[in-house]
Simulated scan of single mutants.
Amino acid sequence: MSEVYDSRACRLGEGPLWHPLRRQLFWFDILEARLLTQTDDGPHEWTFPELVSAAGWLSEGVLLIASETQLFTFDLDTGVREHIAPLEADNPVTRSNDGRADPMGGFWIGTMGKKEEKGAGAIYRYYKGELRQLYGGITVSNSICFAPGGRLVYWSDTVTQKIMKTPLDADGWPAGEAEVFVDLSAEGLYPDGSVVDSEGALWNAQWGAGRVVRYLPDGSPDRVIEVGGEKSTCPAFGGEGLRTLYVTTACGGMTKDGKQGVTYMDPAGVAGLPEPQVIL
C-alpha cells in the first residue's frame, strides 16, 4: 500500500504537477478552489476566487492555471494573477477539469459540467495565443497525457470507460481519428487522470477503485499500485530521478478517515518524464 505524502484531505484532489525547476509538487483541491504544495518549511496553499483544477509551468516562479472561466498566470512568490484566455467564461454550467502541457509547449485542458451534465464539456488546446476546441460533447474530461516525443495524445471521457489515443502532427495538433487505447467497461472501471512514463507506458488512476494501473504502449496492463484513498484521481512522477509516483485522491461524500482525499506516494520502479514548459 502506498505511503501518505500529504495528509490534508481534499474534497477533489486533482492536477498534480511536479515542477522540474523547483523540484516541488503542486496539486489542486478543485471544489475548495485551492492550490497546495509542500516545501522544507512545511505545507502551503493558496485559495482562489473560483474553482481551479490544473496547471503547467511557465518559469521557475510562474504557473499557468486553468479555472472555471479562464487560463491565467500565477506568480508563486507574489500571488499576482494575469488573465491569458477565457475558458467557457460565458457558460456557468461548466468548469475546468483535467489538463497537462504537451511536449511542443501547448497546454491541453478539459471542461465538464459542475454537476456532470451529460456532454456539457469539451477538450481544448492552448498554443501560441490560440485556444482551440478539439473535442466537444464531453461529460467528464480526463486522462490527458502524451507519449514520449509528443506525437500521440491520450484522453478520456470518464463515463465512456475508455481511454482514447489520437496521433498528433509536428505542431501538436490532432492529425487523425481517435482510437480506443484501453476499454475498462468489462471490468466496471472508470479512468480518471493519467500520466506517461519514460518507457511510453501510461499510468491511469481509476476512480472508485483506489488504484493506479500501468498500461504498456500496446494497451496491456503491466502492474497495479494500490492507494488508501478509494477515489484515486491522478498520478504524477516526481522526486529524485522522477521515480516517485504521487497520486491525488478525493474525499467528497466520504468520511474523513485519514485515507480519503489525501495525496499518496509510491516508488514507481521506472522513471517518469519531466513536465514540458508551456510556451505562451
Rank of each mutant, 00 (worst) to 15 (best):
G106I: 02
V80G: 01
S141T: 01
P191F: 09
P167Y: 15
W207Y: 12
P148V: 03
L36A: 13
E50T: 04
V4N: 04
G219H: 07
T37A: 15
P16F: 00
R22H: 02
Q161K: 13
A186C: 10
P167K: 14
Q277I: 03
E88S: 04
D171N: 08
R243E: 15
N97L: 09
G15Y: 01
A209H: 07
K256R: 15
Y215A: 03
K231M: 14
R23P: 02
G208V: 01
S185H: 10
G119I: 02
N142G: 05
M164C: 06
P86T: 04
L184G: 12
R100V: 00
L35R: 03
G42S: 05
H83E: 09
G15N: 02
T139W: 05
E226T: 15
G229F: 02
A205Y: 11
F28I: 00
Y126L: 08
R100Y: 01
I84C: 08
V196D: 11
N97W: 10
F28S: 02
D169R: 08
L64D: 00
L245Y: 12
E68K: 06
P191M: 12
W18Q: 02
D40S: 14
L64E: 00
G193F: 04
M1N: 08
T249P: 06
G188K: 01
T248L: 06
L36V: 07
I163N: 07
Q133W: 08
E116K: 14
P148S: 11
T249N: 12
A66C: 06
K162P: 10
E187V: 04
K162V: 15
L184P: 12
T263R: 03
L31P: 06
N204S: 15
T73G: 06
L134C: 10
N91S: 08
F28G: 02
F237K: 03
M254C: 01
R34W: 08
G269H: 11
Y246R: 01
K259L: 14
D98G: 10
A55C: 09
A33D: 14
E60G: 15
H19G: 00
R214G: 03
E3F: 05
I30G: 09
T158H: 11
G56K: 10
G15Q: 02
M1L: 10
D183V: 07
T69L: 07
F181H: 11
A250F: 10
S194D: 02
V159D: 08
P86Q: 04
D169K: 09
V180F: 03
D41H: 04
M104Y: 11
S2F: 12
L152R: 15
G13H: 06
I84Q: 12
T263F: 06
Y124I: 02
D192F: 11
M254W: 04
A120N: 04
F181D: 07
G110W: 12
G272R: 13
V224P: 06
Q206H: 12
L134T: 05
W203N: 05
G105L: 05
K115V: 11
E60N: 03
W207M: 00
E14W: 15
K114Q: 15
A268P: 13
G137K: 14
